[in-house]
Design a binder for these strands. Sequence first.
DNA 1: TGCCTATTTGGTCAAACCGCCAAATAGTGT
DNA 2: ACACTATTTGGCGGTTTGACCAAATAGGCA
Lengths: 100, 100
Amino acid sequence: MNFADKRKYEELAHINKALAHATRLFIVNKLDEKDYCVKELTEMIGADISTVSKHLTVLKNAGIIKDDKQGNCVYYKLQTPCVLSMFNCLANVIKSNQNR
Amino acid sequence: MNFADKRKYEELAHINKALAHATRLFIVNKLDEKDYCVKELTEMIGADISTVSKHLTVLKNAGIIKDDKQGNCVYYKLQTPCVLSMFNCLANVIKSNQNR
DNA sequence: TGCCTATTTGGTCAAACCGCCAAATAGTGT
DNA sequence: ACACTATTTGGCGGTTTGACCAAATAGGCA
């Protein structure tokens, strides 16, 4: 594996890593419906708000969501909605796994 | 997040986690060309063979690849090739990130 | 300014991840 | 059985992750 390849795959892996947590996948799915602020997501998730905030930071750093400060609250929204299409593929993997 | 949702997202996350490492993404890409055995992949990757073997196990447990023992060697192949289509989406994320 | 709400940041701790090495296992051929 | 090759497994250290709590920061309003 040459240097350029290595860089490319690390970049891809970085994004997948951001999507490698149940809570963050939940967030992505929710944000596909509409924008939510940290507090709202926290209530749905049922974890500490600092935990949720950090999950949101991970997704933001990967370029999957972006934040939109409105007064007191920070609303998050999907930046690259195509991420949702990946779920279909993942669903196929799961389906295929069940047939084993 | 209810129990069924939690299970669903953990299952999805498990697959993404398997794809959240540069070496494993490299392997998936290579196996899209043709089947390779552990030794061949190890030479391309340049890590210890035990390390590569473990990466392959991770991908296999996620249902992304499967193994095919032929005599002395174990050949691996893609089980769900649609995984490759995910790369297109990821490429979009990267492109979008570069425009920021 | 002071108070309240929303969010982020820093710290700590346990669990998981990832690399290598060494040893065990499996198959092939003499 | 023995030697040789290919692969997996177990274990050990170093790094990263993810949860919570506490403290810091930012905005809105009296």
